[in-house]
Design a protein around this nucleic acid. Structure first.
Lengths: 298, 298
DNA sequence: TGTATCAGTGAATAAAACTCATGGATTAAA
DNA sequence: TTTAATCCATGAGTTTTATTCACTGATACA
């Protein structure tokens, strides 16, 4: 049915995508490095091909119609996926095997990437594409072979391999502790607290467990990535609750000092997710390698 | 990263898609209505842009390289989705609301479509896109708002609404029965049997349950859609096990005669699947309407 | 009431896609 | 082994498509 239908050209679709994003032909033209007239023409062509108005011309500007909104959503997605395909093809080049992995940003930077050399020694011929993601997503749709994530072991359409608990500890910079009355037995609830936005209640839960009173929120700072929390903690901005996996170097070097252990949350673990649909030996090898890396740890 | 990367044009991609499908530039050109030279050039351009050989030139012909196979798979999927988006936009036109539904082929033809008039009376302003599918698939990826399916109520990433059991009956054309020794008490195991390919053991299970001996397979015929089984049964080719939903008219008109009831399989039902991700009021309204239609039945 | 800011458009130009014609390489057949 | 047929690559030329330029009209805002 639609298989041989005449497709609008990519330039038409790109123009529409940008025009829809900005609801402005001029802004779209600027983004694309074209003139406003070019965008206007392309959009008009598209409307002729679709057979429906995609924009309502309202005086000085343009607004998406209902049909335009629907189509823009679809097209944006289609083009994103197309770009991903092309990008992966360019990245992979002529490599025999490609493995696309996603991981949590800070976990990727601090734990995974430093260890990848080891994996590459065994699998020298592969092209590895690593992307960072903070939320679960559709593995197949995004062409990802394997994801490393943290939380309850649930991921639609994916097979789960548990890895390890999170292993949280309370840490602070040594300088920060020296400012306290008794540096040997610091009063954590008196320290400024550093939070990770995705889990704002970590400190609350910990301090309650300690039957400490909860520290003043006035001194709290929130960051949306662990890497930011780590930097903040090192610079002495406050005390943080962090996974040991992410601060192994800092603990060893003494730039962060461990103040206490935090009980692991039940049913919250690092885990690997792989698409159930297609068995992928390379992804399986990678998963096995990650598990080995985790257990090798003291 | 890849967002502003230069994308190969659609003509390039279509040429590659066809060339990859046939592993022949000439055949691709024929499919696309172009000359062989055009395809050859476009593929070469694509290879330059990707920076990798996608085909190995082997004497008279061409073969996909590893990289080519990967890329071809991705591109075929991308283009299919793009075509679907465009098709839906064309189909929907300026309609305010679009509802895309998938259903089992024969269920759609015989049960759903005849009743759609009723739904359209309440929801006159919507554009309805109906597609038939025999297997579960990714609802979101394919842009389907609601699917009606039969089997165990499982569908990854979807919310399930049970509808009704299958309600199978054994039927045959009256002419076929008249040829039997005792038309009032036909011997089913002596009749030629009509099977649906997707469930080849329906008859076995039924006849065993009846402690009848299983009829000779020599007289069996297999069809991959219920609609074919129905036609065959009406024309007197044999006895069939069919859902009453699909042959209401024939039973009423007497072109098919009910010989026996078949016990419902446990945990096998008609059900509705909707994507869990986005709540869709129109899909919910449709689901409610279908449920009403089902229960209205005597 | 003037000015700045949009989108639409005719005519011209640049770029891309395509054809035609041809040559080289390879296979299958005589 | 020669011959014919088939397939891909490519130079030159043509057609189609995309884009610009320069201008128009509409509209909001001051």
């Amino acid at each position: 049915m639609s298989s041989n239908a005449h497709l609008p050209s990519l330039s038409v679709l790109r123009c529409f995508e940008a025009a829809a994003k900005h609801e402005s032909f001029t802004a779209a033209a600027e983004e694309l490095g074209l003139t406003q007239g070019a965008v206007s023409r392309q959009v008009k062509d598209l409307e002729d091909q679709i057979g429906a108005a995609l924009f309502r011309r309202e005086g000085r500007g343009v607004r998406l119609t209902h049909a335009g909104q629907r189509f823009a959503k679809d097209i944006a997605q289609n083009l994103t996926q197309l770009r991903r395909s092309v990008f992966q093809a360019v990245a992979a080049g002529e490599a025999q095997n490609v493995l696309t992995i996603s991981a949590l940003p800070t976990f990727a930077t601090r734990w995974l990437v430093p260890r990848l050399v080891d994996f590459k020694q065994v699998h020298a011929d592969i092209c590895l594409v690593l992307q960072t993601r903070s939320e679960p997503f559709d593995l197949i749709e995004e062409g990802v072979d394997l994801a490393i994530h943290f939380g309850a072991p649930e991921w639609p359409g994916a097979q789960i391999t548990p890895l390890c608990p999170e292993d949280l500890v309370v840490v602070a910079a040594p300088e920060l502790l020296r400012q306290q009355a008794d540096p040997e037995h610091p009063d954590m609830s008196a320290l400024p607290l550093l939070h990770i936005s995705s889990r704002p209640h970590l400190w609350d839960a910990f301090l309650k467990g300690q039957s400490s009173r909860v520290g003043s929120k006035n001194q709290s700072s929130y960051f949306d990535q662990f890497s930011l929390v780590i930097s903040a903690a090192i610079s002495g901005l406050g005390a943080a609750i962090l996974p040991t996996y992410l601060i192994e170097d800092e603990l060893a070097a003494g730039t962060l000092v461990r103040l206490a252990s935090v009980p692991n949350s039940p049913n919250q673990n690092y885990f690997i997710a792989t698409p159930t649909a297609v068995p992928n030996p390379l992804a399986a090898a990678f998963a096995a390698w990650v598990r080995k890396q985790v257990t090798q740890r003291v």
